[in-house]
């Protein structure tokens, strides 16, 4: 089963580039640009976390159900999307990220 890593990553990168360009050209405010990606990462993170926990619980307790393969497929696809968006999220909040995480 192919997970289309490159096409999925490219789509997310292009979407982020478009919203970043719109913000730089003053078509949308910085707050709106940040809000779109904050909401996206929040929703996608929650969905991915829930699917991942379900898969690991099913695996740990030997519950093989018919949707397992489907859950794994979507977990991988959403995981690729989340990883790319998480990198953008760190980029968006870099100053706060440096202050909170890197200053020990």
């Amino acid at each position: 089963m192919s997970y289309e890593f490159v096409p999925v990553s490219l789509i997310i990168i292009i979407l982020y580039a478009i919203s970043y360009l719109l913000y730089k050209e003053d078509v949308i405010a910085e707050a709106m640009h940040a809000k779109i990606w904050n909401i996206t990462i929040f929703v996608i993170g929650l969905v991915l976390a829930v699917i991942g926990l379900l898969i690991s619980i099913f695996a740990e307790y030997g519950m093989s159900i018919s949707v397992n393969a489907l859950l794994v497929f979507w977990h991988v696809e959403i995981g690729i999307v989340l990883f790319i968006i998480a990198l953008f999220h760190i980029h968006l909040h870099w100053d706060r990220f440096k202050k909170i995480t890197l200053k020990v």
């Binding site: 089963m1 192919s2 890593f5 995981g79």
Partner: peptide, 24 residues
């Protein structure tokens, strides 16, 4: 925050490696 970033990086990077192994 460090726990979140650390676990995200390790889980994310291992996940991406697994996808590369499977896909390519």
């Amino acid at each position: 925050s460090i726990a979140l970033v650390g676990s995200m990086l390790i889980s994310g990077i291992t996940g991406i490696i697994l996808v590369l192994i499977t896909d390519y």
